[in-house]
Simulated scan of single mutants.
Amino acid sequence: MNTMIYTYQINGMPVQTGDVICTMNGKPDILPGEFWRMVGRLVPGDVDHVAIYLGPDGRCAEAGARGVITFDVPNGNWDTERMARQRGLLFDTFYGVVSPLDVLGYSDEDEVNMRITIAKYVHAQVGKPYNLNFFNPETEDAFYCSQLIYKAYQSIGIDMNTGLAMEQLPGTNQIIYPQEIWEGFSHRKLSLNPNAVLA
């Protein structure tokens, strides 16, 4: 069981235990990636999928087609083809990192304890099935990607539901979207320009 805070870099971006990895569905240059890009168009915003960094090394967790699983990001590179088999053939493109605890003013000790609590929560959900009922983010019997992050942060008293909804579809504000996790908290987007400074 993870009782430490780990650090790592993914595509050159630093992450710590509990940070949220944001991706866009699909990878334009491979055929399965095109399918996932079309799925991603149904979700508001650029961010279609989220996973969580646990550590050590490249160990992450996510809720996807195979339910809640852990997987490894090899050598700090988000290589979607290389990771596809362990992730249930999910093809996506790395977008950025959300660090929800940044700039919230917690003491270092409190932040460490919160990150450990988040990691323990996520570890306890591994093996649970995928939640197809996006309107029920409060269940802990099954999870979709952003619901797993939402519930993990709810365990430390942070509510990630900002009320984002699909236009003209009543009730969709109950859904926890990857985009609202991105927009609602401190985040860093991967720059496509290698010489640019990351914000």
Rank of each mutant, 00 (worst) to 15 (best):
M1S: 14
N2C: 03
I5C: 04
I5N: 00
I5A: 00
I5F: 00
Y6L: 02
Y6D: 02
Y8W: 06
N11P: 06
N11C: 13
G12S: 08
M13V: 15
P14L: 07
T17W: 00
V20M: 01
C22Y: 06
T23Q: 12
T23A: 09
M24L: 11
P28F: 10
P28Y: 11
L31E: 15
P32R: 12
E34N: 12
E34M: 12
E34S: 10
W36K: 05
M38S: 14
R41W: 14
R41G: 15
P44D: 12
G45Q: 07
G45H: 10
D46W: 08
D48R: 01
D48V: 05
A51K: 00
Y53V: 00
Y53R: 00
Y53S: 00
G55I: 04
G58A: 08
R59T: 08
R59L: 07
A63W: 04
G67L: 08
I69M: 10
T70M: 10
T70K: 10
F71H: 09
F71W: 10
D72V: 13
G76M: 07
N77I: 15
D79V: 03
T80M: 07
T80R: 01
T80Q: 03
E81G: 12
M83W: 09
M83E: 14
A84L: 02
R85I: 14
R85K: 15
R87A: 04
L89H: 14
L89I: 07
Y95E: 08
Y95G: 03
G96E: 00
S99C: 13
S99T: 13
P100Q: 04
S107E: 11
E111P: 02
V112E: 15
N113F: 05
N113W: 05
M114I: 04
M114N: 08
R115A: 05
I116F: 03
T117N: 10
I118C: 10
K120S: 15
K120F: 01
K120A: 12
Q125Y: 12
Q125H: 11
G127A: 13
P129Q: 06
N133C: 13
N133V: 13
N133K: 07
F135Y: 09
E138P: 01
E138N: 14
E140R: 14
D141G: 13
A142R: 08
F143Y: 15
F143P: 03
Y144N: 06
S146Y: 09
S146T: 09
L148S: 06
L148T: 11
A152V: 02
Y153L: 02
Y153H: 02
Q154W: 06
I156P: 02
I158N: 06
D159S: 09
M160H: 03
M160Q: 03
G163T: 10
L164E: 14
E167R: 13
L169N: 11
P170Q: 12
G171A: 09
N173V: 00
Q174R: 15
I175T: 13
I175M: 08
Y177N: 05
Q179G: 12
E180P: 08
I181A: 06
I181F: 02
E183G: 05
F185C: 03
K189P: 01
L190Q: 14
S191N: 09
N193V: 03
N193K: 08
N195W: 07
A196M: 03
A196L: 01
V197G: 04
